[in-house]
Simulated assay, not measured.
Amino acid sequence: MLFNLRILLNNAALRNGHNFVVRNFRCGQPLQNKVQLKGRDLLTLKNFTGEEIKYMLWLSADLKFRIKEKGEYLPLLQGKSLGMIFEKRSTRTRLSTETGFALLGGHPCFLTTQDIHLGVNESLMDTARVLSSMTDAVLARVYKQSDLDILAKEASIPIINGLSDSYHPIQILADYLTLQEHYGSLKGLTLSWIGDGNNILHSIMMSAAKFGMHLQAATPKGYEPDPSVTKLAEQYAKENGTKLSLTNDPLEAARGGNVLITDTWISMGQEEEKKKRLQAFQGYQVTMKTAKVAASDWTFLHCLPRKPEEVDDEVFYSPRSLVFPEAENRKWTIMAVMVSLLTDYSPQLQKPKF
């Protein structure tokens, strides 16, 4: 039996910027989407097309609506287990992954450096093979991107980058979902990055142009993004007709920007550089002075944890700040990543306008 099911989002969802409706069903089952990510690794968004990233955001919105707004129980990962390797401490990555995987019926297993010391007490190759025999996927929060590459090469299960010194793809998915909810569409937005040329900026550079977003990034001299990342980002901008601007002037990067974004100036492992970095980043604090040159509809993002020298309280706690919805969306986006890499589930909500 063919029938149409159309569900309008409730007022709370509308206030969050959703404009989605449920799609057509055949015999009670959602029509299959052409994008198939099952079995893939997520090491960097460089390896994913714009349509594939949009699919993960679509799935994130679908799960958030069905579970949070409608109160449905979706045991999509029942019987599955997740290995979680954490060389670096974490609040949002650990909580979002553990609670999200469990909410979908799966079992997450948290492993610290006290439990598993990558490449030291056991080779990366052996670790990958053992984990492949006992879990359905691995999320690893590590220092070196090369460790993730080896795990992915040797494992027979999906490997997800929970953060590395080079990339933080699951954070950027949460950022984009937050902006999608707020603005209704990502295409045409100008992202203004003010801070370090770090893993967050690298992940934005590997994906923003694929949505038709422009990027203006300001970093201090000596703290620019990796040249190889910049070269590829320039290629993406050319292919997608977007603008990429790199500067050392924070106000220049903020000018006309819809979204002001910053991050910590001192990442884990850089503590000994604190004094030098604080000096180099003088003038990079995001304030209302910065916002004055931004677009009239400006918003603010920070992946947390935040330090006052990076952004003052007036901006951080303002109505324009989306940092706490951004933090919550870490949960819905990592759930979508797990579902897309481990199952054949298709979203029931109509695909949003990106």
Score class of each variant (00 low, 15 high):
197 G>C: 12
236 Y>I: 01
205 M>W: 06
298 W>Q: 03
230 T>P: 01
261 I>R: 05
204 I>Y: 14
308 P>V: 08
264 T>R: 07
261 I>C: 06
206 M>K: 06
305 P>I: 04
211 F>K: 06
231 K>V: 05
200 I>T: 15
217 A>P: 10
225 P>S: 08
232 L>S: 03
211 F>E: 03
263 D>Y: 13
308 P>S: 09
244 L>C: 05
199 N>E: 13
288 M>E: 12
291 A>Y: 04
223 Y>N: 04
265 W>K: 08
271 E>H: 12
300 F>W: 06
214 H>M: 03
197 G>I: 09
233 A>N: 01
232 L>K: 07
206 M>I: 07
278 L>Q: 14
271 E>C: 12
199 N>Q: 13
196 D>N: 15
233 A>F: 01
220 P>N: 10
219 T>A: 08
240 N>W: 12
201 L>M: 10
208 A>F: 08
272 E>V: 11
208 A>R: 07
266 I>Y: 06
239 E>S: 10
196 D>V: 12
295 A>R: 07
261 I>T: 04
284 Y>W: 11
280 A>N: 09
306 R>D: 09
195 G>T: 04
248 N>Y: 00
270 Q>G: 10
218 A>G: 07
255 R>L: 06
251 L>Y: 15
244 L>T: 01
252 E>N: 11
249 D>H: 08
246 L>S: 02
282 Q>R: 14
271 E>F: 14
211 F>L: 07
268 M>I: 09
263 D>E: 15
203 S>H: 06
267 S>Y: 13
262 T>G: 06
295 A>N: 12
285 Q>F: 05
281 F>W: 02
298 W>D: 03
244 L>N: 03
253 A>D: 06
198 N>F: 06
211 F>D: 03
267 S>N: 15
240 N>L: 07
296 S>W: 00
234 E>F: 01
299 T>V: 15
257 G>E: 01
302 H>Y: 10
237 A>L: 02
288 M>F: 05
220 P>G: 13
206 M>T: 08
250 P>Q: 02
298 W>E: 02
271 E>R: 11
305 P>Q: 03
291 A>R: 05
251 L>C: 06
297 D>G: 00
216 Q>A: 09
300 F>Y: 14
303 C>G: 10
210 K>W: 08
263 D>P: 13
215 L>A: 05
245 S>P: 00
249 D>P: 02
243 K>H: 14
227 P>V: 10
204 I>C: 07
229 V>W: 08
219 T>M: 13
245 S>K: 15
245 S>M: 15
280 A>G: 07
295 A>S: 14
210 K>M: 10
242 T>R: 00
263 D>V: 14
301 L>I: 05
296 S>F: 00
